Simulated assay, not measured.
Amino acid sequence: MIRLLLTFTLIACTPATAASNPGFQSWLEKSLWPEAKRSGIARATFDMAFKGITFDPKMPELKSAAPKRQTQSEFRAPEGYFNQRSIDRLAKQGAALEKRWRDTLARIEKRTGVPRRIILAIWGRESVYGTFKMPKNAIRSLATSAYAGRRSELFKGELIAALRIIQEGHISAKAMGSSWAGALGQPQFLPSKFFDYAVDEDGDGKRDIWNSVPDTLGSIANYLAKFGWQRGRDWGFEVTIPASVSCSLGGPDQGRKIAGWAGMGIERVSGRPFPKIELANTGYLLFPAGRYGPTFVTTPNFYVLKQYNESDLYALFVGHLADRMAGGKAFRGRWQDLPSYTRAEVKRMQDVLVAQGYDVGGADGLIGYKSRNAIGKWQNKVGRAATCFPSRETIKAIR
């Protein structure tokens, strides 16, 4: 899960987290260095990586900072996630890059089975095809979070993995650009994932996901292939789902053959039949906004995309962008205007549902498919029309 560590909070700086924090330098030498040494990091690598590195008081999730309202777009109301102007622009850029990198993409697609437009769509979503400048120095960001973050042990492991990347010569410490959470380069791999999934596609001896387009494309495809991308299958289809089919049937734990869904009156919005290759295979209903937006039948490949980022909206964006590169149209279903929620608001609702015996998949403040299904089942039980998504009125009623 590449971008799971992206921020849900905005953080205020406090006097205790000054950039000159003396405890930080002491921690580097007395705590981090012995652990890095045990992990095989050379002293020369360690000293080079931390030369001039200071504590970053603006990092999210510092222990000294009070959590604030979530900001990550994948967990807001769905409508705002699919800006058609942005998607149109990315689709046009992606189509041009498909031509430019045709031979490289053909080789990667043949080897991994991952369609070239899916590879390009992830590249576009993660780093705008490599044009987005990574805002942070990975070593500084990871070290700050390892020293004073709420998940210090997790970040410490990522930091040591980043030092290993430097030691093996894939990138210099100075050039190791990242997100605030240390997600690296154009495909936004966490350091711990780099050695499992990054590849040297251009054959220069380095896995350079910062500067090499072939390495970036090959690494994205390798990641999806290793998580089980099914060769020859699509990611999913926008459909119309009759009211007689409950919206609480969504999710990967309630799959059935696509022919079975079609037999229940589910049809593609394009008017075309489902491909013959798909009819005998398993598909899953997806109601990303419950009954308040477009609906889909997805394949297992949709859930492979979720291994890159666990958000339904992220995986849907990638699949949709890939379709748009091939000349596909905007969604036919209309996203209704829904409010955004804080995680605390959603969690309070989930806690009530759990207390009443509903499975929300963990009261984590995120509106995943199990929470949507639980809302629909609760609505059916109390005699309300099932929407499987929380309006303000629904959240108030469930409380």
Rank of each mutant, 00 (worst) to 15 (best):
I2A: 15
R3A: 12
F8T: 03
L10A: 08
T14F: 11
T14W: 07
P15M: 02
A18W: 00
A18M: 10
A19M: 07
S20K: 14
F24I: 07
Q25S: 13
Q25Y: 12
W27D: 07
E35M: 06
K37D: 09
I41L: 12
I41R: 09
T45Q: 06
A49E: 04
G52L: 10
P57D: 06
P57L: 01
P67F: 08
K68D: 11
R69N: 09
R69C: 00
R76L: 15
R76P: 00
P78E: 07
F82D: 04
R85P: 02
I87T: 01
T104G: 03
T104S: 14
T104W: 11
I108V: 13
I108N: 08
V114H: 03
R117W: 05
L120K: 10
L120V: 11
A121C: 10
A121V: 10
I122M: 05
W123K: 05
W123S: 08
Y129T: 01
G130V: 05
T131F: 01
F132Q: 09
K136A: 05
N137F: 07
N137G: 15
S141I: 10
T144D: 06
A148V: 00
R150Q: 13
R151F: 10
S152I: 00
Q167A: 09
G177Q: 03
S178G: 04
S179A: 07
W180L: 05
G185I: 02
Q186V: 04
F189C: 03
P191I: 11
P191K: 02
S192E: 03
F194D: 04
Y197S: 04
D202L: 06
G203C: 11
D204N: 15
G205M: 06
T216V: 05
L217N: 00
S219I: 06
A221F: 07
N222P: 00
Y223M: 05
F227K: 13
W229A: 02
R231P: 01
G232L: 06
D234G: 04
V239M: 05
A243S: 14
A243D: 14
S244V: 08
Q254D: 00
V269T: 15
S270Y: 03
G271T: 06
K276E: 15
F287Q: 04
P294V: 12
T298S: 10
P300V: 06
N301W: 10
L305R: 01
L305F: 07
K306D: 03
Q307T: 15
N309K: 12
E310Y: 14
L313H: 12
M325C: 09
F331R: 05
R332V: 15
L338V: 01
P339E: 07
T342S: 15
V346R: 02
K347D: 02
V352R: 14
V354E: 14
D359I: 00
A363N: 11
I367G: 03
K370G: 05
K381M: 11
C388K: 07
P390Y: 11
T394L: 15
